[in-house]
């Protein structure tokens, strides 16, 4: 699916990176613990999280992710959006809670791409 399709499925607002909406994404992960993202995630293009601080964007950048989705109507700061713009990461916000957002994407074919 593309980031645009993800946006539609989550009824999300695009906060930055609108030019990335055509990019393909094949897997995603959901976590509020950046330590876990850094430890276990591999090749996921999208991070869904309810945590709001600049290290969320940095973590996504380190993992070569191209999209961060904030759940539960959380709003990133201007500074975070600036970092995301610089890093080529699209940032979206949805009213859905984490479970619902992840479930919706999973049910629509966006997998987790687990690697041991």
């Amino acid at each position: 699916m593309t980031i645009a399709e993800l946006r539609d499925l989550l009824d999300a607002e695009v906060l930055c990176g609108g030019e990335l909406l055509d990019r393909d994404i094949h897997s995603a992960c959901g976590s509020d613990m950046m330590s876990d993202v850094l430890a276990y995630v591999k090749d996921q293009a999208v991070l869904l999280t309810g945590l709001v601080n600049s290290q969320v964007i940095r973590t996504a950048e380190m993992m070569d992710m191209i999209c961060v989705v904030f759940v539960r109507s959380k709003r990133p700061t201007f500074e975070m959006l600036t970092i995301a713009e610089d890093s080529g990461i699209a940032v979206l916000a949805t009213k859905m809670r984490m479970y619902e957002a992840c479930g919706t994407l999973y049910a629509n074919g966006l997998g987790a791409n687990h690697t041991p």
Partner: peptide, 12 residues
């Protein structure tokens, strides 16, 4: 609360 300190840093 900032998303770190899970005891994964050094092993990672």
């Amino acid at each position: 609360s900032l998303g770190f300190g899970a005891g994964m840093g050094l092993p990672n």
